[in-house]
């Protein structure tokens, strides 16, 4: 086996895996992998990417056909890693980077922690929940309970996803706890506008990445991944709605 070609294929697959895992759209993953493979000297390159797997096939310079695939299980939302891999692929294609350097850089991106620390994300969901609730309800006083609710729902989401490892169920539970917090705050006299506070509490859970990527995939002609991501976004929205509905019906009865 020629080790250089092995390394090239591994490089392309790792780059594609990182981009798809952290929330890039299908068209971009396919295009990046294809450009990198062509720049590294492969011919007749074909890449096929769905939401859960990556296929790459091509012909090497010694007329050796290769075809490899990778299964993607986890999907996170970390767009800064997508940006970094995108930047790296541009440099690799333009020729200012060897395969070894690109591999070392990809390993660094794979290992590095999230762009923002977790406490900043908690803070951002509190601020975002409070600010978004003002846009809906126009009540300055209710921004504080809404931000408390947003903080609780994100805390619950991170906690349940870490311990339960169940995607839609943990979103359901997070929305449930956010809704319960909002209802308790309103019923104890701390806040007046119930709908504004509940919306602000659960808005940090909105599945923005699959929602937008679904539209982009469908428009780019990647119908399978577009529908798959749309289904993911719809299921997440339904679990959030069900969580809030459970909390509300507990308090109404």
């Amino acid at each position: 086996m020629t080790t250089k070609n092995d390394r090239l294929i591994e490089l392309c697959l790792t780059a594609g895996k990182l981009m798809l895992m952290y929330g890039a759209e299908t068209y971009r993953v396919e295009d990046t992998m294809k450009r990198m493979a062509v720049a590294g000297g492969m011919r007749d390159v074909n890449s096929f990417v769905t939401t859960t797997g990556i296929f790459l096939s091509g012909m090497l310079d010694d007329d050796d056909d290769v075809m490899q695939m990778i299964r993607i299980v986890d999907r996170f939302q970390d767009l800064s890693k997508v940006t970094e891999v995108n930047h790296l692929s541009r440099e690799f294609v333009s020729g200012s980077m060897t395969i070894q350097e690109a591999r070392a850089e990809l390993k660094r991106i794979e290992k590095q922690p999230m762009n923002y620390p977790l406490w900043l994300i908690y803070l951002a969901s509190a601020v975002g929940g409070g600010a978004f609730s003002y846009l809906i309800g126009n009540s300055m006083f209710d921004m504080l309970p809404a931000s408390i609710g947003g903080l609780v729902s994100t805390l619950a989401l991170v906690l349940f996803q870490h311990y339960l490892q169940a995607k839609f169920f943990s979103e359901y539970l997070a929305a449930f706890f956010g809704g319960i917090t909002a209802l308790i705050l309103v019923h104890s006299g701390f806040g007046t506008n119930l709908d504004q506070i509940i919306i602000g509490s659960v808005i940090p859970l909105v599945p923005g990445v699959p929602l937008t990527n679904s539209v982009r995939d469908l428009m780019a002609g990647d119908l399978i991944s577009g529908l798959a991501r749309g289904a993911e976004a719809a299921l997440t929205s339904l679990s959030i709605a069900a969580g809030v509905a459970t909390a509300v019906s507990l308090f109404i009865s």
Binding site: L79, S80, K81, L120, G128, A131, Y134, L135
Partner: peptide, 19 residues
């Protein structure tokens, strides 16, 4: 309202881990 909207959008950008 516009300032609050800008703050909300930036907060969501942090939630989505944007550079």
């Amino acid at each position: 309202e516009l300032i609050i909207c800008g703050v909300a959008t930036i907060a969501f950008a942090i939630i989505f881990n944007i550079p």
